[in-house]
Amino acid sequence: MGVSQKGLHDWIIQRVSAVVLAGYILFLTGFFMLHASVDFMMWQKLYSNMFMQVATMLTLLALMWHAWIGIWAVFTDYIKCSVLRGTLEVLVLVALFSFFFWGITILWSI
């Protein structure tokens, strides 16, 4: 991904990831509306489904990528000290990768 096209690629990724997130949220909303009381067994059954696991993994990826693009934009707007900005960016990236792999670990241990 060239620097000269970073804006275009980020713009596309933000929109595609937003659609993925919206689809997942709509699905879960529908699930909760159809099942008034959700117990552990039902929850485990839902997430044991391969389709649901792949969809959740994709949603996690979309969430992290979407968040990174947004946070990067906020940092470049408000933090003018490059050392501080770089440090914060590394911390955020470590946090996002950790959240992603933590989520994957939980998902595949069901």
Binding site: V3, S4, Q5, K6, G7, L8, D10, A73, T76
Partner: peptide, 12 residues
Amino acid sequence: LSKLQDAFSLYR
């Protein structure tokens, strides 16, 4: 159009 594809010029 090609000059506007970086992260700031247009997409900010």
